[in-house]
């Protein structure tokens, strides 16, 4: 466990402590693709023409993959993690007020500090503020639907928003997305780059979503579902949901070997 992590904030209390090797400076752990959706997932029809058919070429990580962009507080504005206020024009947005919080960890269980987390979502009626979204639910004049945060030195992040609504989309004639928030996370190296979606505990649309069910591993799917976290809720103000994100771990270089003859 990261010794710097304040105990009250640690979302994995009561879970087994993971093995924590020395901080890595080598390549990232090999990605376990069996827990990710395959590129070609015919139930999600858009993937059919957009999925590579050749095998991916596996590459030992070089400096090009171990490194990645570094962001700082100068890149963000003070309201960037407050979706209730960051686009408010003449009042608060409509919807259930919620706090979303958690930690960005790597596979060793270590918090990923100072990393950029970006999030975007539909409004409470299931409508996106996007020129290409034509769903009949109205745009909320006080809701933009995006924000971003930098994790602190323990990997912790939080933001405030309204709970997004589900919405229909063209896959089958009656396909509906469960309520979800999109997340983009960087990590310390470009090979950790990840986009995913967070879902809400108890949503009956989860098991019938053609996008969510592209994930072949039941446990991996469950890990995208954020539990209600009453302890983090603000009485008479906002409910809270907790969502931890795990990025690939990084190997330590215990012994340096140079390839002979090169």
């Amino acid at each position: 466990m990261n010794a710097q992590a304040p105990a009250l904030r640690d979302p994995r209390l009561n879970r087994p402590e993971p093995f924590t090797p020395p901080l890595g400076d080598g390549g990232f752990f090999q990605r376990d693709r069996s827990i990710h959706p395959p590129a070609h997932a015919p139930g999600y029809k858009s993937s059919v023409l957009r999925s590579p058919r050749q095998a991916l070429l596996s590459l030992e990580n070089s400096i090009s993959e171990i490194t990645g962009p570094v962001f700082g507080h100068n890149d963000l504005g003070p309201l960037d993690n407050d979706l209730i206020r960051n686009y408010a024009k003449d009042g608060d947005p409509v919807g259930e007020r919620i706090i979303v919080h958690g930690r960005v960890l790597d596979e060793t269980g270590r918090g990923v500090p100072n990393t950029l987390v970006e999030f975007w979502q539909a409004n409470a009626g299931g409508r996106y503020r996007h020129r290409k979204d034509t769903y009949l639910a109205p745009v909320d004049p006080n809701f933009g639907g995006c924000g971003r945060a930098l994790t602190d030195d323990t990997g912790y992040y939080y933001f405030r928003t309204v709970k997004p609504g589900p919405y229909p989309w063209r896959n089958y004639v009656n396909s509906w997305r469960p309520a979800h928030i999109h997340f983009s996370v960087f990590g310390s190296g470009f090979a950790q780059r990840l986009i995913t979606q967070m879902y809400f505990e108890g949503d009956p649309l989860i098991p019938v979503c053609p996008i969510l069910t592209t994930i072949p591993d039941k446990d991996a799917l469950d890990r995208l579902v954020a539990p209600l976290d009453l302890n983090a809720s603000t009485p008479f103000d906002s409910l809270a949901y907790r969502f931890d994100i795990v990025l690939r771990g990084q190997r330590s270089t215990y012994f340096e070997n140079r390839t002979a003859g090169n």
């Binding site: 993971p18 858009s46 269980g109 996106y128 503020r129 979204d133 995913t196 446990d219 890990r223 995208l224």
Partner: peptide, 30 residues
């Protein structure tokens, strides 16, 4: 061994601009 598992990827979707390039989605926020 108790390693954690990487969070599963999900598509960025058609409205990825909202979060990552909001000007392309059609609004100014940051």
């Amino acid at each position: 061994l108790n390693y954690l598992k990487e969070t599963a990827s999900q598509t960025a979707g058609p409205y990825v601009h909202i979060g990552l390039i909001p000007a392309m989605a059609g609004f100014d926020i940051f």
